[in-house]
């Protein structure tokens, strides 16, 4: 699973990256986290607000910093959908 955090480096973006890493660590799954800081790449995902969270090239959330638990839920939900 490839998870991308979209953000140009504002505080919210850093918080999201950190929480995503925490979520992955506590789920103990095999996933890579990549920070996308290039604005041209960010807007190509079609989000209007940073930070954005992208799992396997699918935009999961934008404009908010979900809690670690909420991120875990999103990852699990995505994994479940991918499996079926």
């Amino acid at each position: 699973m490839t998870i991308k955090v979209l953000g140009t480096g504002c505080l919210n973006c850093k918080t999201l990256e950190q929480r995503t890493r925490e979520a992955i660590a506590s789920l103990n799954i095999d996933a890579s986290v990549e920070k996308v800081e290039d604005i041209q790449k960010i807007v190509a995902y079609g989000i209007l607000r940073t930070p954005g969270l992208v799992i396997d090239e699918k935009v999961i959330s934008s404009g908010s910093v979900p809690s670690v638990d909420a991120i875990k839920e999103m990852i699990l939900k995505h994994a479940l959908q991918a499996a079926t």
């Binding site: 140009t8 504002c10 919210n12 604005i39 960010i42 807007v43 079609g46 989000i47 209007l48 607000r49 940073t50 404009g63």
Partner: peptide, 14 residues
């Protein structure tokens, strides 16, 4: 509308 100037660029392009 919730807006922060850090999102000005994606919003502008959108």
């Amino acid at each position: 509308t919730p807006f922060c100037s850090c999102s000005a660029v994606p919003l502008f392009i959108g």
